[in-house]
Every structure is written in structure tokens, then in C-alpha cells.
């Protein structure tokens, strides 16, 4: 029967392509973990034998550890600024019904649409024109602009789910605005702030286009350093750094799943 054949071909095709994409998603992570345990001097696959020598080597490589530390510092400062400024902004624009609020929302989201290189170049040119020297803080400024939209999106979603009568009740029962904010609003949007901060941190830690233009010579961040190493040679230490990053990401994912349930957060069929 022709229909049965067609259905079997469809099932086979979907299954094969899904298997291919599963393999494609998984393979690079596995490859990184395997190659980071090589005992050899090259990225030859499979590794001739196993060892942890490249992880040990990492701790003797200040030229990699220093950028890693810088990246952590940049990402921490960026997350702090993004969380404070972004949460405040989200509270403002999602509690207001004025047209200006919609305009500000569009403005705050535009760094997500605009290629980050164009924005970074523009900020660099302005710094050049006004004679401001690049530093750690110019880098944090650039990172904050491109990371703050994540905080606004996620806190905004929490603010929109907040029942405004709770705030009205608290105020009419005599609580001050500050007390109401601390005891009512903040606990209810905390998860949004945490999630937004986490994404902001990750995207700052991973950011390349902004760091490429706005970091001074002394503020070298990890992704740029790794990129520079890989452009020059295929250094096996990069595999060890990658291994560390993969394991930390994996642990973070497991924690997020245990705390909030990642798999539940997307994919509820609508009623």
C-alpha cells in the first residue's frame, strides 16, 4: 500500500534526522571532554592515552588564569549593574501605561537586535573623540548595555504576572512604599531577577564583540585570549579550559533543573 510506505518513510526520516541532530548536539561536548584528557601534545583523535596533565598545566599558566579571573570580575560587575538598573527599569516600564514606557521598552531591547560589533565600535569611537582611555570600567559599561535586556525581559515577565491589588492593599493598609516594595514586590519578582542575572552573567562571560573593541591592553578577557591562542596554534590547554567550562555549565544546569525545573519552564501546552 502506497500510504503505508509513505508513512514508514516519514517515520524513518523524522527518526533519522532527529537522531542526527541529537548526535550533533551531543558530539562537540563529548569531544571536548575526551580530548581534554589526552596525554599527547596535539589534538589528535582518539587520544593516544589518558591523563590529567593539561588540567595540571592550566594551574601553571598565569597567561590563561589571569584572563579567566578578569572575565569573572567583568561578568560580576556587569551582572550587578544589569540586575539593579534592569530590575528598576522593568518595574518602571511594566507598571506604567504611558506611551513613553513602550518607547523605553523598545530602546532597552534594541541591543539584542543591533549587531553588537556596530554598537561596540560606536562606543569606542565616542571614547576616542572625547579622549576617554579604555579601562576595566569602559568594558563593564559596554557589557552592561548588551546584557541588561535579558534582565529586563525576565523581570518584566515576573512584574506582568504580579497582581497589582497586592501592592494597593499593602499601601492602603498603611505600609510605606519602601516597606511594600521590600515585603511584597521584591519576593514576588525574585525568581525573575535571579534568572535574568544568571543569563546576564553567562552572556557577559561569553561576550566577544564588545570585549574586542572596548577592552584596554591590560584587561584581557578569557574568550578573547582563547580565540587569540587558537588563531595562532592548536594549544591543548584550550581543551582543559573548555573541559572546566563544560563541567561548570553542566553543574549549573543540574542545579537550575533541581531548583526551578528547566524542562517545565518551557513547553506547557496552553489550555
Amino acid at each position: 500500500m502506497q500510504r503505508d510506505l509513505g508513512d514508514r518513510v516519514y517515520g524513518g526520516l523524522v527518526g533519522a534526522l532527529a537522531a542526527a541532530s541529537t548526535l550533533l548536539l551531543l558530539a562537540p561536548t563529548l569531544v571536548v571532554l575526551i580530548i581534554s584528557l589526552t596525554s599527547g601534545m596535539t589534538l589528535k583523535f582518539p587520544p593516544p592515552s589518558w591523563s590529567l596533565r593539561w588540567y595540571v598545566e592550566l594551574f601553571r599558566s598565569p597567561e590563561i588564569l589571569a584572563p579567566a579571573l578578569t572575565s569573572l570580575r567583568v561578568a560580576s560587575c556587569t551582572t550587578l549593574f544589569s540586575a539593579v538598573l534592569g530590575s528598576a527599569a522593568a518595574l518602571g516600564i511594566f507598571n506604567s501605561r504611558s506611551r513613553l514606557a513602550r518607547l523605553l521598552d523598545a530602546l532597552f531591547m534594541s541591543p539584542m537586535v543591533l549587531p553588537a560589533m556596530a554598537f561596540s565600535l560606536s562606543l569606542l569611537l565616542v571614547f576616542n573623540v572625547i579622549g576617554l582611555r579604555l579601562s576595566f570600567w569602559t568594558l563593564v559599561l559596554g557589557h552592561t548595555i548588551v546584557c541588561v535586556p535579558f534582565v529586563i525581559r525576565m523581570v518584566g515577565a515576573a512584574v506582568q504576572q504580579l497582581d497589582p491589588t497586592l501592592v494597593t492593599c499593602s499601601l492602603s493598609l498603611g505600609a510605606s512604599r519602601w516597606y511594600t516594595f521590600r515585603r511584597i514586590t521584591l519576593p514576588l519578582i525574585r525568581r525573575g531577577i535571579t534568572a535574568g542575572s544568571l543569563v546576564a552573567f553567562l552572556s557577559s562571560f561569553d561576550n566577544v564583540p564588545v570585549s574586542l573593541f572596548l577592552a584596554d591592553a591590560r584587561t584581557e578577557v578569557l574568550p578573547i585570549k582563547l580565540w587569540a591562542i587558537l588563531e595562532g596554534s592548536l594549544d591543548v590547554r584550550v581543551a582543559a579550559v573548555s573541559g572546566v567550562i563544560v563541567v561548570i555549565t553542566l553543574l549549573g544546569l543540574v542545579c537550575a533543573e533541581a531548583l526551578g525545573g528547566l524542562s517545565r519552564s518551557f513547553g506547557k501546552p496552553s489550555p
Binding site: V32, D206, V208, P223, S242, I245, V246, T249
Partner: peptide, 10 residues
């Protein structure tokens, strides 16, 4: 969520 450089390195 894994860094872009890591994925590219793979």
C-alpha cells in the same frame, strides 16, 4: 549555555 569559543573549539 556553553561558551561560544568552547563550541567552536570542539
Amino acid at each position: 549555555l556553553t561558551s561560544t569559543v568552547v563550541r567552536t573549539f570542539a
